[in-house]
Deep mutational scan, measured.
Amino acid sequence: HDVTIHAGDKTIHVHGASEEFLRIIEQAKRDGIHEEELLRLIEELVK
């Protein structure tokens, strides 16, 4: 999957995102996670 995530003034493109990655991001959004926290989460996941 190619994913584009908008968080605040940043746009992150993730190529080859796994289903698990997508679920984590969707869950985080539903939980109302702060955008900066979401960015950190994404950066950890894509290392």
Rank of each mutant, 00 (worst) to 15 (best):
30 R>M: 13
22 L>Y: 09
37 E>K: 04
39 L>E: 06
36 E>G: 08
35 E>I: 14
35 E>A: 14
26 E>W: 09
30 R>T: 11
39 L>W: 14
46 V>F: 13
14 V>K: 01
17 A>M: 14
19 E>H: 10
39 L>A: 08
12 I>P: 03
19 E>L: 12
8 G>E: 03
10 K>P: 03
46 V>E: 05
44 E>N: 08
34 H>V: 12
47 K>N: 14
2 D>K: 13
14 V>W: 11
18 S>M: 04
1 H>W: 14
40 R>N: 09
8 G>V: 05
23 R>F: 11
28 A>F: 09
29 K>W: 12
38 L>I: 09
14 V>Y: 06
42 I>F: 13
29 K>Q: 15
4 T>Q: 08
40 R>V: 08
4 T>F: 08
37 E>S: 06
7 A>R: 03
16 G>A: 09
35 E>P: 15
10 K>T: 13
16 G>T: 07
12 I>T: 04
14 V>M: 08
27 Q>T: 08
35 E>R: 06
8 G>L: 06
33 I>A: 11
16 G>V: 10
30 R>Y: 12
24 I>W: 10
23 R>K: 14
27 Q>C: 03
25 I>V: 11
10 K>N: 09
6 H>A: 09
1 H>L: 14
36 E>Y: 10
12 I>G: 01
25 I>Y: 07
28 A>C: 07
5 I>A: 02
18 S>T: 15
20 E>Y: 09
4 T>I: 15
19 E>D: 14
46 V>G: 07
3 V>R: 00
11 T>M: 10
27 Q>Y: 04
3 V>M: 10
13 H>T: 15
40 R>A: 14
44 E>S: 09
27 Q>H: 05
34 H>S: 15
23 R>W: 13
23 R>V: 08
17 A>G: 04
26 E>T: 06
23 R>M: 13
38 L>C: 02
10 K>V: 14
16 G>I: 10
26 E>R: 06
25 I>R: 00
22 L>N: 05
12 I>F: 12
43 E>K: 07
35 E>M: 13
18 S>G: 07
43 E>F: 11
33 I>N: 01
15 H>A: 11
5 I>H: 04
17 A>T: 06
44 E>R: 07
6 H>Q: 14
21 F>Y: 03
33 I>W: 11
36 E>P: 05
41 L>I: 08
17 A>E: 02
7 A>D: 04
9 D>Y: 03
3 V>Y: 09
33 I>V: 13
15 H>M: 12
41 L>E: 00
3 V>F: 13
46 V>L: 15
24 I>E: 05
47 K>F: 13
31 D>T: 07
28 A>G: 02
41 L>D: 00
39 L>M: 12
47 K>T: 14
42 I>D: 00
10 K>Y: 12
34 H>C: 13
1 H>N: 12
19 E>T: 07
17 A>Q: 05
32 G>R: 02
38 L>K: 00
12 I>L: 09
21 F>E: 03
36 E>Q: 11
39 L>Q: 07
38 L>G: 00
8 G>A: 08
8 G>I: 05
1 H>G: 11
24 I>P: 00
15 H>N: 10
39 L>N: 04
4 T>S: 08
13 H>A: 06
46 V>N: 07
46 V>T: 10
46 V>A: 08
37 E>Y: 06
6 H>F: 07
34 H>F: 10
44 E>L: 10
12 I>D: 02
8 G>N: 06
11 T>H: 14
1 H>K: 13
6 H>I: 15
19 E>Y: 08
28 A>K: 03
20 E>S: 08
27 Q>E: 11
28 A>R: 01
25 I>T: 01
6 H>T: 14
20 E>M: 07
3 V>G: 04
37 E>A: 13
43 E>D: 12
40 R>Y: 08
8 G>C: 05
44 E>I: 08
42 I>V: 13
41 L>T: 01
21 F>N: 02
27 Q>R: 09
2 D>L: 14
37 E>I: 06
21 F>T: 08
14 V>R: 01
47 K>V: 12
40 R>L: 13
34 H>Y: 09
18 S>W: 09
13 H>L: 13
43 E>N: 08
40 R>F: 09
22 L>T: 05
30 R>A: 15
18 S>A: 05
10 K>S: 09
4 T>P: 03
34 H>R: 13
38 L>E: 00
24 I>A: 11
19 E>R: 06
7 A>W: 14
44 E>C: 06
13 H>S: 09
10 K>E: 06
45 L>K: 01
42 I>N: 00
3 V>Q: 03
14 V>D: 02
31 D>V: 03
35 E>H: 13
33 I>P: 01
1 H>T: 14
9 D>L: 04
12 I>K: 01
27 Q>F: 03
24 I>F: 10
31 D>C: 08
1 H>S: 12
44 E>F: 12
39 L>K: 05
26 E>D: 10
33 I>G: 01
34 H>I: 12
24 I>M: 10
42 I>Q: 00
15 H>I: 14
11 T>V: 15
11 T>F: 11
29 K>V: 15
34 H>E: 15
18 S>F: 05
13 H>N: 09
25 I>A: 01
6 H>L: 13
1 H>C: 13
41 L>V: 03
17 A>S: 04
8 G>Q: 05
29 K>R: 13
4 T>D: 05
24 I>Y: 07
23 R>G: 07
16 G>Q: 10
16 G>C: 04
11 T>Q: 09
24 I>H: 04
22 L>Q: 04
13 H>Y: 11
8 G>Y: 07
19 E>S: 09
8 G>R: 00
26 E>Y: 06
21 F>D: 05
21 F>W: 13
28 A>T: 01
16 G>L: 09
26 E>F: 04
4 T>M: 12
21 F>V: 12
31 D>P: 01
45 L>H: 10
13 H>C: 07
20 E>N: 06
46 V>M: 15
2 D>P: 11
12 I>N: 02
22 L>R: 06
16 G>R: 02
25 I>C: 04
32 G>Q: 06
7 A>C: 12
1 H>Q: 13
10 K>C: 01
39 L>R: 05
15 H>T: 14
9 D>P: 01
3 V>P: 02
36 E>I: 10
18 S>C: 03
44 E>Y: 12
9 D>V: 01
38 L>D: 00
2 D>R: 12
39 L>V: 13
34 H>P: 15
16 G>M: 11
10 K>W: 10
29 K>G: 06
37 E>F: 04
10 K>A: 08
9 D>T: 04
38 L>A: 00
42 I>W: 08
12 I>R: 00
43 E>T: 08
20 E>P: 01
15 H>Y: 09
23 R>Y: 11
46 V>D: 04
26 E>P: 00
37 E>M: 08
31 D>I: 03
17 A>P: 07
1 H>D: 08
31 D>G: 06
34 H>K: 15
31 D>L: 07
3 V>H: 07
20 E>K: 03
12 I>Y: 11
11 T>S: 08
24 I>K: 09
4 T>E: 11
3 V>N: 04
42 I>Y: 05
37 E>Q: 10
20 E>I: 06
21 F>I: 13
30 R>C: 01
23 R>A: 14
6 H>C: 10
39 L>P: 00
44 E>Q: 10
23 R>N: 11
17 A>L: 15
14 V>E: 02
18 S>Y: 06
36 E>K: 10
26 E>L: 09
20 E>H: 09
37 E>G: 08
45 L>T: 02
32 G>I: 02
29 K>Y: 14
15 H>E: 09
30 R>S: 11
25 I>P: 00
43 E>G: 05
11 T>A: 07
34 H>T: 15
28 A>M: 11
27 Q>M: 08
44 E>G: 06
18 S>K: 04
10 K>G: 05
35 E>N: 12
43 E>Y: 13
28 A>P: 00
2 D>W: 15
30 R>W: 09
32 G>F: 03
31 D>N: 11
27 Q>I: 07
40 R>H: 10
28 A>Q: 01
9 D>H: 04
24 I>S: 05
1 H>V: 15
33 I>R: 02
29 K>E: 09
35 E>V: 14
11 T>I: 14
19 E>Q: 11
26 E>G: 03
3 V>D: 03
17 A>I: 14
41 L>H: 01
4 T>C: 08
42 I>G: 00
39 L>G: 02
6 H>S: 13
20 E>D: 13
29 K>H: 11
10 K>R: 10
37 E>D: 13
15 H>P: 09
16 G>Y: 10
9 D>N: 12
30 R>N: 12
2 D>H: 14
19 E>F: 07
18 S>P: 05
40 R>G: 05
3 V>L: 13
37 E>N: 06
20 E>L: 07
13 H>E: 11
29 K>S: 10
37 E>C: 06
14 V>Q: 02
29 K>F: 15
31 D>W: 04
36 E>A: 13
33 I>K: 06
36 E>S: 12
8 G>M: 05
25 I>Q: 00
34 H>Q: 14
1 H>M: 14
46 V>C: 09
10 K>H: 12
43 E>A: 13
34 H>W: 09
3 V>W: 04
33 I>T: 06
26 E>H: 06
30 R>L: 14
32 G>L: 04
14 V>G: 01
14 V>F: 12
46 V>I: 15
26 E>N: 07
4 T>H: 09
10 K>D: 02
39 L>C: 08
11 T>W: 12
10 K>Q: 10
40 R>D: 07
38 L>S: 00
32 G>M: 05
5 I>V: 10
28 A>V: 04
14 V>N: 01
16 G>W: 11
1 H>A: 12
20 E>R: 03
43 E>Q: 10
8 G>F: 08
20 E>V: 05
37 E>T: 06
33 I>Q: 03
2 D>N: 14
23 R>L: 14
11 T>L: 14
15 H>R: 02
24 I>R: 10
47 K>L: 15
12 I>V: 12
21 F>C: 04
23 R>S: 09
24 I>L: 12
31 D>M: 07
15 H>C: 07
14 V>P: 02
6 H>P: 05
2 D>E: 12
2 D>I: 15
